[in-house]
């Protein structure tokens, strides 16, 4: 059942089509209503907030006006600009590593056999079931300097202070993001790989193709569209994330999710915070539009 896709039937029967359009709208309506109240209205509010500029006089009194100063601040204030760049970099690195690992797991699950593969299929999903707060916390106790790993290494003779800084560093964010996102990406890639027929792979092998050639010329191209969708979704998750970079990240630069919360709760600058939210949104929107286009291409296919 997994190998065929049945697209929405474009029937050339005008009356039924109209009914179908109406029914379609009716079925989507509850979700749409929900999203309007709980997502779209707050989003519009946040966007309006981002154009509110607050000025402060010498005595600490505030005045408000409409303007684009907050946006300018994000690209002109060095720390804020660095945060944007840092966020994108971390997202790209995390996604790349997860992708490589998840692809390897998915390949092993799809084409491998034996007890090791069965074991693999049981363990790779575990992080999916661990709340991100706990995962971050576990990683801190595990990877901190003078943490669990450092302790073991020193036991076997590594000198003190030779352990690299992972916690409170970009490495900590990346490792924990990888840990957390691995199952999702693997599940996704596995299902994509399932669609590649055994016959195709075997016939390639029959004409003498090596494993690498099969991977390079058959598996990779066929799984690319699905893979790109997984990448998009993970990118969205990492760019907007808070828990992991807050608990494991460096003091500076900060990922935008963290910076936004600081601006809101600590610096009492909700306007700048909203602006950061909108910037993340715009970054993500590029990925989202790409995702939708990809989806349509697949349907056409």
């Amino acid at each position: 059942m997994a190998s065929t896709t049945f697209a929405a039937p474009p029937r050339p029967r005008p009356r039924r089509l109209d009914r179908s359009r109406l029914a379609g709208l009716a079925l989507v309506a509850p979700s749409l209503l929900y999203l309007t109240v709980f997502v779209f209205i707050p989003v519009v509010k946040a966007i309006t907030t981002s154009f509110t500029v607050r000025d402060r006089d010498n005595a600490g009194n505030y005045s408000y006006r409409v303007g684009t100063d907050n946006y300018r601040a994000i690209f002109e204030t060095e720390t804020l600009r660095d945060n944007v760049i840092f966020t994108v970099l971390i997202a790209v690195i995390s996604v790349a590593i997860v992708f490589a690992l998840a692809y390897s797991i998915a390949l092993a699950l799809r084409f491998g056999k034996g007890p090791a593969v069965r074991f693999l299929s049981r363990i790779y999903v575990i992080p999916l079931f661990i709340p991100s707060v706990i995962a971050s916390y576990a990683m801190i106790t595990f990877l901190a300097n003078h943490g669990f790993v450092d302790g073991l290494l020193q036991r076997v003779g590594f000198p003190d202070e030779s352990f690299p800084r992972i916690v409170f560093d970009w490495k900590g964010i990346v490792i924990t993001q990888v840990w957390l996102s691995l199952p999702f990406m693997t599940v996704l890639l596995s299902s994509v790989l399932l669609e590649i027929s055994d016959t195709l792979v075997e016939s390639a092998r029959d004409v003498g193709a090596s494993s690498w050639q099969i991977f390079r010329h058959i598996v990779l191209p066929l799984s690319a569209p699905g893979a790109l969708i997984g990448i998009t979704f993970m990118f969205l998750g990492v760019v907007g994330g808070f828990t992991v970079p807050y608990l494991l990240g460096p003091n500076a630069p900060q990922m935008l999710g963290v910076s936004m919360v600081y601006y809101m709760t600590n610096y009492f600058e909700p306007y700048v915070a909203s602006t950061q939210a909108v910037v993340i949104f715009l970054l993500s929107l590029v990925a989202a539009i790409y995702y939708v286009r990809q989806q349509f291409k697949r349907e056409v296919r």
Partner: peptide
């Protein structure tokens, strides 16, 4: 299954909860 009008736009709208950073959304 059905011919939902404005399908492409709707699908994009359905992605907004994921594209807008959650914290910003929650505060709003």
């Amino acid at each position: 299954r059905l011919n939902v009008p404005f399908r492409r736009v709707l699908l994009l709208l359905f992605l907004i909860p994921n594209a807008f950073p959650r914290i910003g959304l929650y505060v709003s």
